[in-house]
């Protein structure tokens, strides 16, 4: 059986071990990359960007280690991508948390969650509105809870072409999104037990699907193994 080759970017701001192990458990062939020189897009089917901590610190570290351009190029080519938690947030233009700008891959901003009578961070297992037809959630049932651990979230309403799965904690925020092959979750699929592993399998399936029908723009396509 074909195995999706997934690279996890380690820029010092995420739970790399848990992310890698969950992806591998779901059947992925996982490599952790810390140096842009070690990243070969032609030998990679999917890219995962975890992230924990402060928005500004994550963006800055990603830029410092030089992996930001690799993310931008990858997303530009619409190749399978999964951003998790702050790895989702920094795709946006900016966040209330920090003055540093995000990567700007997505329009919009991150806002602080919470409200009267709600403890922050938003920590634990929560629901989200049921997405109509998204590949990410295929095989899970309405009402499924995933594990969240965050204080900020991307505001909904990103516009055309973005499939939004919304959750609410004092304010509405994006639990997950899909824009073609660009996927991201505010919750942690790697910490969401059996239901989380279903999402990882869906991501791996999208990686394999993209491998067999690669985007036309990529001159690298011919170099990839069949």
């Amino acid at each position: 059986m074909k195995q999706a080759r997934v690279v996890v970017f380690d820029y010092g701001m995420g739970n790399i071990r848990s992310v890698s192990r969950a992806c591998a458990k779901a059947g992925g062939d996982v490599r952790v990359v810390t140096d842009p020189g070690d990243f070969d897009p032609s030998l990679t089917d999917g890219l995962v960007l975890p992230g924990q901590g402060h928005f500004g610190a994550c963006v800055q570290r990603l830029r410092t280690v030089g992996l930001d351009q690799a993310v931008l190029d990858w997303v530009q080519e619409d190749r399978p991508f999964l951003g998790i938690c702050v790895g989702m947030q920094i795709l946006a233009e900016w966040s209330e948390e920090d003055s540093a700008p995000g990567l700007g891959v997505l329009p919009g901003r991150c806002v602080r969650v919470g409200g009267p009578g709600l403890t922050v961070p938003h920590m634990g297992w929560d629901c989200q509105t049921w997405p109509v037809q998204t590949r990410l959630f295929a095989g899970t049932v309405p009402g499924t809870r995933f594990y969240y651990c965050h204080s900020y979230g991307l505001s909904p309403g990103l516009g055309h072409g973005v499939e939004e799965t919304v959750s609410s904690y004092g304010v509405p925020f994006l639990a997950a999104l899909e824009r073609s092959n660009l996927w991201a979750t505010q919750f942690h699929p790697e910490k969401s037990s059996a239901d989380g592993l279903v999402l990882w399998k869906n991501f791996l399936a999208s990686c394999l699907a993209a491998r067999s029908s690669p985007p036309v723009s990529g001159a690298r396509v011919s170099e990839r193994e069949a």
Partner: peptide
């Protein structure tokens, strides 16, 4: 906590 669907953790 009220006003949210967040589950109490065991």
């Amino acid at each position: 906590m009220t006003g949210s669907s967040l589950a109490v953790r065991v």
